[in-house]
């Protein structure tokens, strides 16, 4: 899923690199607000988790399998700023230590997978949480919806970048149709997996899920006092 070297021309790659650097800078400040002095260890461990989660293959059938991209998952679990930070770090490590995704395409990959994926998922989840009833059970379906929408949107942004600095003259309408169709399928898989993962965490530790915290806060504490006086 990572864009390799040579796909987009140098000016486009440099521009996305600058945008990605700015986004990571903003995310660093935002993550410090979300995590305070826990930023380094927690963001580090969550990034490690995202990396490991991408190694789990989900069988699709006919011998093929796919893996999670994790943008929406990270956004829902740890919040948008920490999410962008973690995915960017994962992409950096993959590019430098695993040769996965091009070095010059690193900015493009951070913008597409990190920024667009996380921001779109966050907007979808927060927007719907504002209008829907505040129930913990809704967090997982909303996370799934965020994943479903964020993947095709990221592919559309890629088509936009390709229109500006693509290396081959592919008719844009064909590219748009192919990318949208293919990524809607990927988005469906991502949505099902993200929903199930978030559901399983909300069932055990809802306090760890960033998107569930505001919903949890509205629960009222129920005090039960015994009807009769307990002898001392």
């Amino acid at each position: 899923m990572h864009v390799p070297d040579g796909f987009l021309d140098v000016p486009t790659s440099v521009t996305t690199g600058v945008v990605a650097a700015a986004a990571v800078g903003v995310a660093l400040r935002g993550a410090r607000r979300e995590l305070d002095d826990r930023t380094a260890p927690l963001a580090g461990l969550v990034a490690t988790f995202v990396f490991a989660a991408q190694m789990i293959n989900f069988p699709v059938g006919a011998g093929t399998s796919g893996h999670l991209m994790g943008g929406a998952l990270a956004a829902v679990l740890v919040g948008p700023w920490t999410g962008i930070l973690c995915l960017s770090v994962v992409l950096l490590v993959q590019a430098l230590l695993f040769a996965d995704g091009g070095i010059t395409a690193l900015g493009t990959n951070v913008v597409l997978i990190g920024v667009v994926g996380v921001v779109v998922a966050t907007l979808v989840v927060r927007g719907l949480q504002a209008v829907l009833p505040k129930r913990v059970g809704l967090v997982a379906p909303l996370a799934a919806l965020g994943a479903l929408i964020s993947v095709p949107v990221a592919s559309l942004v890629f088509v936009g970048l390709y229109a500006v600095g693509g290396a081959a003259p592919v008719p844009l309408d064909d590219l748009t149709t192919a990318m949208l169709g293919w990524h809607t399928l990927i988005g469906l898989g991502e949505a099902v997996v993200t929903g199930m993962v978030v559901g399983s965490i909300v069932g055990v530790r809802p306090d760890l899920v960033h998107a569930a915290r505001r919903v949890l806060g509205t629960r009222t504490v129920e005090l039960r006092t015994p009807a009769t006086e307990v002898p001392a």
Binding site: D37, R38, P41, L42, G44, L45, V46, T48, F49, A52, A53, I56, F58, P59, V60, G61, L68, L77, V192, V193, M196, V197, V198, G199, S200, I201, V204, R205, L208
Partner: peptide
């Protein structure tokens, strides 16, 4: 080997997140 096994794998990912996050808290 089957898409029906997704819930099991998803719970593994969930458990992995809880373990990683709690490890982060202990490291902190």
């Amino acid at each position: 080997r089957n898409p029906r096994h997704w819930p099991v794998l998803a719970r593994s990912v969930g458990a992995l997140f809880i373990r990683s996050y709690e490890r982060g808290e202990r490291v902190h």
